[in-house]
Amino acid sequence: MAPVYRLTGAKIEIKFNKTIGKLNFTSGLKVLSLRHLLKLKATNVMKIALAQLNYTIGDFDSNRKKIVECIDSAKSQSAQLIVFAEQAISGAPAYDLLNKVSFLDLCEETLRDIASHCENISVLIGLPVQCSNKTISVAALIENKKNQTLHR
């Protein structure tokens, strides 16, 4: 049975067969080793970094800097995946700014800049995008310095 990951607030719950591991954290960067957390004897272990930061609405430079610092920190700790919050790039709640095309363009530009720092690590990060004349929150998966997919 494959592991199931569920993020709820400031907790991550990882279920593997009948084993349950829970980790509570406040802010900053936490790197989980599934082998350590679940005491697995598997040889293929994935390290996941969880970044819970204080983002500023519309301050793309500050948010990008915080995100890139966390990516670099996660890489130095041998994490293979780092997970950021919903609308980490734009800051939340952005309310009326989500209706401005220039704001959404800055989100996508910042995503491309962040992607250029994602060598040897995968990044799952939230941002708003325009889809069919409305704005939705998506999770962007970045691998090998490229935005691979957007998930609703």
Results as ranks from 00 to 15, higher is better:
residue 1 M to E: 09
residue 1 M to Q: 09
residue 2 A to K: 15
residue 2 A to I: 15
residue 3 P to W: 04
residue 4 V to I: 15
residue 4 V to R: 09
residue 5 Y to N: 05
residue 9 G to P: 01
residue 10 A to T: 13
residue 13 E to W: 11
residue 15 K to N: 06
residue 16 F to P: 09
residue 18 K to L: 07
residue 22 K to D: 03
residue 24 N to F: 13
residue 26 T to C: 13
residue 27 S to M: 10
residue 30 K to Y: 13
residue 31 V to P: 00
residue 33 S to Y: 01
residue 34 L to M: 00
residue 34 L to V: 08
residue 34 L to G: 05
residue 36 H to T: 04
residue 36 H to P: 06
residue 36 H to Y: 11
residue 37 L to A: 00
residue 40 L to Y: 10
residue 41 K to W: 04
residue 42 A to I: 13
residue 42 A to Q: 06
residue 43 T to Q: 03
residue 48 I to W: 04
residue 48 I to P: 00
residue 49 A to Y: 06
residue 56 T to W: 06
residue 59 D to H: 10
residue 61 D to T: 06
residue 63 N to L: 00
residue 65 K to V: 05
residue 70 C to L: 03
residue 72 D to Q: 07
residue 78 S to C: 05
residue 79 A to H: 13
residue 82 I to P: 00
residue 84 F to W: 08
residue 86 E to N: 14
residue 92 A to S: 15
residue 99 N to C: 14
residue 99 N to W: 15
residue 99 N to F: 14
residue 100 K to F: 02
residue 110 T to K: 10
residue 111 L to G: 02
residue 116 S to P: 00
residue 117 H to F: 12
residue 118 C to R: 09
residue 119 E to M: 14
residue 120 N to P: 04
residue 125 I to P: 02
residue 125 I to F: 04
residue 128 P to V: 08
residue 128 P to H: 05
residue 129 V to C: 04
residue 130 Q to G: 13
residue 130 Q to R: 08
residue 133 N to Y: 06
residue 134 K to V: 02
residue 140 A to P: 07
residue 140 A to K: 15
residue 143 E to P: 10
residue 144 N to K: 09
residue 145 K to W: 01
residue 146 K to V: 10
residue 149 T to S: 12
residue 150 L to I: 04
